[in-house]
Design a protein around this nucleic acid. Structure first.
Length: 272
DNA sequence: ATGCGGACCTGTTAGC
DNA sequence: TGCTAACAGGTCCGCA
């Protein structure tokens, strides 16, 4: 579920409640997430101050003095600020309880996400080490994308969703960015030109920025730190709109599979 | 090195 | 109405 805008929405919502506060305990109700949470947290000491809440790609990083709590929301995860006393639901797997009485509650029906404790330089952790640049920084530019695309045979959509190339772009925003750039998702990487690379980078940045402003996309179950949905779904051009009219040309939005992922595009507005 | 397919889970929806 | 199958926002691993 959560792509970069949803993770960033969560981060900015949580930060004011957490930064400068002491973690008094971490309560694990169901540790069977992507990585077994009790094991992953085994060495974590309690009573430390959270210095800041950061984000790298789709990972949330709670930076403490002795290490980092690294949270990934997977497909269906969310993290809400609740009162410690609130009765947990079926999928409320982990609580991070602060000395202030505020509780960060991790909810994840599909359990594809995880909560890890990492000591030392978190960016050297195997899950972060090989990540590509953040999409919203200058380092992610037309020249960079072209360099990474040329000489490869994968489809352009697959490349965009490869976190070693650029982080944070999941299936929804890959579809949207390709539409905005006027590029068919079935185009091969090798066919990217300087011009189309420029358009695509611009589109990726634009769609992510707009989605962050709208508080993310809620298709089914994404909620922010207050348990509220995002509103970007109302602004989607192609994702989830198979068979409907293109908002730009009125043509039919196509829907098919690429790799294993649901793909949407306008055959008229997007060229291979 | 690159590309591809399967695996990890559960809940909801579509279809018979 | 009720059962079953397909599908869903994301990685990560192993094999060719």
């Amino acid at each position: 579920m959560p792509e970069l805008p949803e993770v960033e929405t969560t981060r900015s919502g949580i930060a004011p409640y957490v930064e400068g506060e002491v973690v008094s305990k971490v309560l694990v109700r169901n540790g069977r997430l992507r990585y077994i949470v009790p094991k992953a947290l085994a060495k974590m000491p309690v009573g430390q101050v959270v210095r800041r809440v950061d984000r790298r790609g789709k990972y949330l990083l709670f930076c403490l003095d002795g290490g980092t709590i690294m949270v990934h929301l997977g497909m269906s995860g969310s993290l809400c600020v609740v009162d410690e006393g609130l009765t947990p639901g079926k999928h409320d797997h982990v609580d991070m309880v602060l000395a202030s009485g505020v509780c960060l509650r991790y909810t994840d029906p599909r359990r594809f996400g995880s909560v890890l404790w990492v000591e030392g330089d978190v960016f050297e952790h195997r899950l972060l080490k090989h990540l590509g640049p953040e999409p919203l920084v200058r380092q992610f530019n037309a020249r960079y994308l072209l360099t990474r695309a040329l000489g490869r045979k994968v489809l352009i959509k697959v490349l965009l969703m490869d976190s070693r190339v650029v982080v944070g772009v999941g299936n929804i925003y890959a579809n949207e960015a390709l539409f905005l750039a006027g590029i068919d998702p079935r185009m091969r990487c090798g066919d990217l030109t300087a011009e189309s690379s420029k358009q695509l980078v611009k589109a990726v940045k634009q769609v992510l920025r707009r989605a962050i402003e709208a508080g993310g996309t809620t298709l089914k179950d994404f909620v922010n730190s207050e348990g509220k949905p995002g509103y970007f779904q109302q602004k989607l051009y192609v994702y989830g709109r198979g068979g409907e009219a293109c908002r730009r040309c009125g043509g039919l939005i196509e829907h098919f599979k690429l790799g294993q992922r649901s793909t949407y595009c306008c055959g008229n507005c997007q060229d291979v």
